[in-house]
């Protein structure tokens, strides 16, 4: 498990070339900046189509949308064959890539335990193309392809909990992180980068344009997701060992998270209650797992 990091330990140097081409207040840009602060040299960065975040000072390559897992596989196997295991293959992908079109390939790479680190910046829809539904979109969220009208209440399905899908494959390390908890995020990247095998870090990165909130509130929104239990921060090792990194005495109501975002504006009290119950149940699950120090569901 990652070791606690303090603000004083956060390196002053940047690993990115800035400014980037993201929108104002972009959560993904924050995730990239924090990640590459601690990634260090000797990294080959992999991308698939997604929103721009931040260019990093490492060699980088882009693959086809469905090529996340295989491109990391190709790189890490070639590095092994050429005897350059000092170099790390790192993927920096969006939620549409990781949860939808590249999900199968990543599952296969995880099952083969390829030596690669996957970082997912999860902004819960295809934001690069204008905010269409992805496997990361939460239930009831309005997207440009889950429009709200007399016949539709927004997205019909719950957000995929991809961490547990990867856990089922027993990969060495999985973590969730949030841009509102930068030290926790960087500690996880720092820990994961040197593990051998397949590692996944899922970072929730709010999108002011797609979620429709004031760009100044990106961190506020990200923080309330964690504090309300909508985006719990945890680590899973070898598909079993479990640790919850942030445990408030009491969860904040999910309305604190939903309210600032216009994508949830249409939700009725019944729908909010349904989501609250769902969130509480999921939270109970992770609490129990944390107590048992292993996945219990």
């Amino acid at each position: 498990m990652s070791e606690r990091m303090t603000r004083a330990q956060v390196p002053l140097e940047e690993g990115i070339i800035f400014p980037g081409s993201t929108c104002q207040g972009c959560g993904a840009a924050m995730a990239a900046r924090l990640t590459f602060k601690v990634m260090g040299p000797n990294v080959i960065r992999h991308g698939i189509p997604c929103c721009p975040d931040q260019s990093s000072k490492s060699p980088s390559t882009g693959s086809v949308f469905e090529g996340a897992g295989p491109s990391l596989t190709g790189t890490s196997r070639a590095l092994k064959a050429l005897g350059r295991t000092d170099i790390k293959a790192v993927g920096f992908f969006g939620d549409g890539g990781v949860y939808d079109i590249s999900f199968g390939g990543l599952m296969a790479a995880a099952q083969r335990n390829e030596n690669a680190l996957v970082i997912c910046k999860d902004n819960e829809a295809y934001m690069n193309t204008g905010g269409q539904h992805s496997g990361g979109t939460p239930k009831y969220a309005e997207t440009t392809t889950d429009q709200v009208g007399p016949n539709s209440r927004g997205n019909k399905f719950h957000k995929i909990r991809a961490a547990f899908a990867f856990a089922a494959l027993g990969v060495p390390y999985i973590a969730t992180a949030s841009v509102a908890f930068p030290e926790d995020l960087m500690a996880k990247v720092k820990y994961a980068k040197d593990i051998e095998g397949f590692r996944v870090i899922l970072i929730q990165t709010p999108c002011p344009v797609g979620w429709r909130f004031d760009p100044a509130k990106t961190i506020e929104v990200a923080r309330s997701a964690v504090q309300s239990g909508m985006w719990p921060l945890y680590e899973i090792e070898n598909g079993s060992t479990f640790k919850l990194n942030y445990k408030p005495k009491e969860l904040k109501p999910i309305t604190e998270y939903l309210k600032p975002q216009a994508r949830f504006r249409h939700m009725t009290e019944t729908e909010i209650n349904e989501m609250q119950t769902y969130t509480n149940q999921r939270w109970e699950e992770v609490l129990r797992a944390d107590e048992a120090k292993r996945l219990t569901f």
Binding site: I44, H46, T61, S63, V64, E66, G67, G69, P70, S71, L72, T73, G74, T75, R77, A78, L79, A81, L82, G105, A108
Partner: peptide
């Protein structure tokens, strides 16, 4: 499809694929 992406990346790294 993954096979092609794998060899593509391996070649980008400098391997004979």
């Amino acid at each position: 499809l993954p096979a092609q992406v794998i060899v593509n990346n391996a070649a980008l790294v400098g391997a004979r694929a």
